[in-house]
Design a protein around this nucleic acid. Structure first.
Lengths: 148, 148
DNA sequence: TGACGAACAAGAATAATTATCATTTACTAG
DNA sequence: CTAGTAAATGATAATTATTCTTGTTCGTCA
């Protein structure tokens, strides 16, 4: 067989190159499967789908590559995941700054954000309780650490 | 001893009454410990602290009561916890509606929100990457279900 | 006092995620 | 095209996070 007789591998190879990833078959299928999945799939759901195309794939591979994709900006986390449930006392109105590197959460007053979350109607009769705004970025400490 | 000789149990008993909870010793300690914890503790962290005051307490009790507190509005979740990591392809600008009951996530266009997240300076030299706005409420399906 | 129901503790059971390690694969230079 | 090398993968063990089950205790009210 000649070099790359497969259907359309060009775009994916480029995407990998752009993000500094080696292009493997598993990654390509993973990416293409996710592209077809609406909504916000969990790793298990992605695994189930990919498995139809690559029955021998390991769940660990799915996790590793999802993390890698997130790290390189191919995917993003729907909401910052802290690994466990986090709560706080219901007090005054505030939101959060989340460091995308160390995952630290810091409170931020609503008045320090220039947002006026005055909603109109929302699609599908969704009944709004409140807003939660995450300002995602890099905290001072991690900026320092990365400067090395 | 007379009824309630303890130092200051009044406010807590009232708080429980207000939220339809029976006031137990465990709950009181749990609540008071969390009040002294800055930041956004995980159940494990809360457990570790409460254990210093009630060595016999069970982790399950901590979980159950945290859930109960959240349910009754004494606590709130810092960000919705979906039980597993959720990702999406990096595409156009949008945010999410999250059902606080069934945890379903639905996309919502930024233009459908009346928010203009134009920031000024942020505390501590935090370098902003992006915003993530969660509109938290009850989805239509859960509203139906609760009407029973 | 005695029954009843809510709350608890202990630990087993489950779900989600990460680590380990032997084997295979992709990229590079020759 | 082929060998060398680092990276990726698959299988599975190990962790971590959370929930469930069961038997016991405690407070309330008849």
């Amino acid at each position: 067989m000649q070099t790359s007789s497969s259907v359309e591998p060009r775009p994916f190879r480029e995407l990998c190159a752009d993000h500094g990833l080696t292009a493997t078959h598993q990654r390509q299928v993973l990416y293409e499967v996710m592209k077809t999945m609406p909504g916000h799939p969990s790793p298990e759901e992605v695994y189930a789908r990919v498995k139809k195309r690559i029955p021998a794939i390991s769940l660990a591979t799915v996790y590793k590559n999802i993390h890698l994709f997130v790290e390189r900006g191919v995917l993003k986390e729907v909401s910052m995941h802290h690994g466990s449930l986090r709560v706080e006392l219901n007090s005054h109105l505030h939101h959060h700054m989340v460091c995308s590197h160390c995952k630290a959460i810091t409170d931020i007053e609503e008045k320090d954000l220039d947002v006026v979350p005055t909603l109109r109607r929302l699609p599908g009769g969704f009944q709004v309780e409140r807003y939660a705004i995450d300002v995602i970025g890099i905290c001072a400490a991690c900026q320092e650490a990365k400067r090395s």
